[in-house]
């Protein structure tokens, strides 16, 4: 996997766009608007949100492994302060935090 592309690098703080739009979306509802950090850069992939409609998936989108602290994602999370949640998120769903 090529790790050169993309505007974010590991350690960058990012916020998931709170955007709410129709169509095939790979960013789960529960994580929109939440902040975390880039754990890993996976490289560029065809955009599934375009492929889902029979289109070509271009341009490719950088994909990141984004980490979140569970306590910051859920209002009620059991007392385990180290627990984390990791989600694969495409760049167009992220903004600098």
């Amino acid at each position: 996997m090529s790790e050169s592309s993309g505007r974010f690098k590991p350690g960058d703080r990012v916020r998931v766009r709170a955007e709410d739009r129709p169509g095939h979306i790979r960013t789960p509802f529960y994580i929109r608007g939440k902040s975390g950090w880039v754990e890993r850069v996976y490289g560029e992939f065809l955009n599934p949100e375009s492929l889902a409609y029979g289109r070509d998936g271009l341009p490719k989108r950088p994909l990141y492994l984004v980490g979140f602290r569970q306590a910051e994602v859920w209002e009620k999370y059991e007392t385990a302060p180290k627990d984390k949640l990791y989600i694969d998120i495409y760049e167009h769903w992220l903004e600098p935090a």
Partner: peptide, 11 residues
């Protein structure tokens, strides 16, 4: 077909 399309159809 692609899996992405089937997922969209399920959605």
């Amino acid at each position: 077909k692609r899996t992405d399309e089937l997922r969209r159809a399920r959605e």
